[in-house]
Design a protein around this nucleic acid. Structure first.
Lengths: 183, 183
DNA sequence: TGTTTTGTACCGATCGTTCGGTCTCAGCCT
DNA sequence: AGGCTGAGACCGAACGATCGGTACAAAACA
């Protein structure tokens, strides 16, 4: 069992409960490993676990959401629709939180904060790039990328607080059209 | 010194660091009280402290944001602009988080969760009411109220993650017009 | 065999909480 | 006036539990 084996379990824990909310005892139970085994796979301790988890999530996002978005051979609106479909899958139609959002409210640790920030920036830039390719002005494209992430994170937060995934679904449905407004 | 005296300090702590992130030692230092004294003012312990803090924040919101929004004698757009001005003050132009957002990512405790949910619902309904009074269809008004809170919370989250309050300021600037679209 | 992986027992620190008690001060009796 | 009393605000010290982390040897695998 390599360390990658257990990253999905860590991902589920951290996205739901955040850095402070997850204890090593929780992780041990979720993975079925003892503490010593956890420290064998993650010598850096909890910090390394959460950083590896962010890396795992970032890889999934990059491969399943951002890479397809960078394709050259497609109508922008269709690319964005594909992105929304993948996001709906990632967040289980609004029933699961985003680990980047969860970690934003965690303790102030520079490396963690930087990892979250970078994940968001890459996401925003991938959207902006798609819009620029479709002829949108560069500054406006970046604004719309930010708008998209604000809408996603905001809707996930509301969905979680209200125990109702519909706000997220509504936001996701109108997102492609909203981003392409004015072509 | 009554317990209300210390609520602003608790508010600042909890909005920034959340339930798990704030320890009684932190609170003791911030208030200048000993731990035992905290239990004199809040016999229910940490739970009562955070609940009282949410009540304090809710009262501020009700008095300074929602009540003015319910005024009858004003153009809707102006009422919404006033709301945004107050919100800008509450969140220090995007440099301070919303305690409702922060608490959304805290541990799953039913009473806390319910208090956060209720705060959001009241906020949404106050906005929706203002729109209904201006002639907007009831269902659409509720959707736009939800949209407003998603935009606010999403922009605050992004602002915090990126160490940049501008996304929040941008969202707040366009919010009144956005809510009144199509009169 | 040697290496990787694991369970157990343990560490110091900190968690939220409680105990026992001090200090101050207004109200009341004499 | 002087002394007593009770309530409220406050605090130091300690509680048991849990935190993240470690030492080490048995077990599993090569």
């Amino acid at each position: 069992m390599s360390r990658e084996t257990h990253l999905p379990a860590l991902f589920q824990l951290f996205r739901e409960q955040g850095y402070d909310g997850v204890s090593l005892a929780n992780i041990a139970k979720a993975t079925g490993l003892g503490k010593a085994s956890l420290y064998h796979h993650f010598p850096g301790g909890k910090d390394e676990m959460v950083l590896a988890t962010l890396g795992y999530a970032g890889d999934w996002l990059e491969q399943n959401v951002l890479q397809p978005l960078r394709q050259d051979d497609g109508e922008v609106q269709e690319l964005l629709q594909g992105m929304c479909d993948r996001l709906s899958q990632l967040y289980d139609e609004g029933r699961q939180p985003c680990i980047l959002g969860t970690m934003t409210f965690g303790p102030v640790r520079d490396d963690l904060h930087e990892a979250v920030k970078q994940g968001l920036v890459e996401f925003i830039e991938a959207i902006a790039l798609a819009l620029v390719k479709a002829g949108v002005d560069e500054a406006l494209a970046k604004e719309r990328g930010e708008d998209a992430l604000m809408a996603i994170q905001g809707s996930l937060l509301i969905a979680r607080a209200m125990d109702d995934p519909k706000p997220f679904q509504r936001v996701l449905k109108r997102l492609p059209g909203q981003l392409c407004e004015g072509i």
